Simulated scan of single mutants.
Amino acid sequence: MIPARVPALDPAARRALADTDAVVLTGLPNSPASLPVAAARLFGTSLRELFPHRTRTSVDGGVVGLHADSFDVVVDVGGRQVRRRHPDEDHVLISLAAAAPEGGLSFVLDAHEFTDSLDAELMDFLTGTDVDLYGRWAQTRGLPAAPRVARHVEYTRTGRRITRRSDGATALHRDPAADRVEALLARFDTEVGRVQRTLPRFGLEEGDVLVLDNYRCWHGRDAHVGSRTVHVQTIRTDEA
């Protein structure tokens, strides 16, 4: 999909996000402070959790493949456990702070539609097999030691579908079907790579904020030359 571009203060921005689960907001200051402003404008009183923003700068960066933003990070702050990321963040806001001189175009995929188009074996795997979502990142600081067990396609208790995409997914420890799980994960990666090559690309202007339903939309960007900087913030709404 190519998200509509809508002025951030226009009521049409909410409608665009509701219709397609993706929108590009324009007209906000080029600052990380615009991310919580955009979240408040779009979600109002349904906004429940706002996770710390993060700034990412890449130089001569390679392709960032299709993914849904999610992570499981809990840190100790003054003896209190504080969650800095959540596996079920339901929206992501990405602001382009500095565009690369060349490349870095974005792409977005309707993950529900894509996974529904896969063959029966893969779809049964995605909906019916538990994996460790972040098992490949087990040594990452701040990542809880307990495996995060889930399926790629699940539903919230209110019926909202989650279609996950993480390159940290692996078979559960001592899963007797581990070889089959890893083989299907590899085949899933192949299918994602295939569709990624076919997606239309679109550019962001500096200061634009790309807002996505993180349960439905996967996103990525092409390789680029030179330096590129984005601000990213994930949130949870009451629908999560």
Rank of each mutant, 00 (worst) to 15 (best):
V77W: 02
A39D: 13
T45P: 06
A68W: 01
R54M: 09
F51H: 12
V75I: 13
A68K: 01
L42M: 12
G44H: 12
G78A: 06
V77K: 10
L66C: 08
L50I: 13
A39F: 00
S70V: 05
G61F: 02
G44P: 04
D69L: 04
F51E: 06
V73E: 04
T55A: 04
G44V: 09
S58I: 00
G79W: 00
G65C: 14
V59I: 09
L47R: 00
P52L: 00
D69K: 01
V77I: 10
V74Q: 11
G61A: 03
V77G: 06
D72L: 01
V64P: 02
V77Q: 09
D60V: 08
P36L: 08
S70L: 09
G78F: 08
L47A: 02
L50C: 10
V37K: 08
T57I: 06
A68M: 12
L50G: 07
R56N: 07
A40S: 14
R41E: 07
V59R: 13
L66H: 07
V73G: 01
P52K: 04
H67C: 00
R80S: 11
V74M: 10
L47F: 05
V64H: 15
R83I: 01
D72F: 00
H67M: 05
S46N: 13
P52F: 01
R56K: 10
S58M: 02
T57N: 02
A40G: 09
G65L: 15
V73K: 07
Q81G: 11
A40P: 05
S58Y: 01
L42I: 02
L66Y: 15
G65F: 14
F43T: 00
L42N: 09
V74H: 13
L50R: 04
R41V: 11
S70D: 13
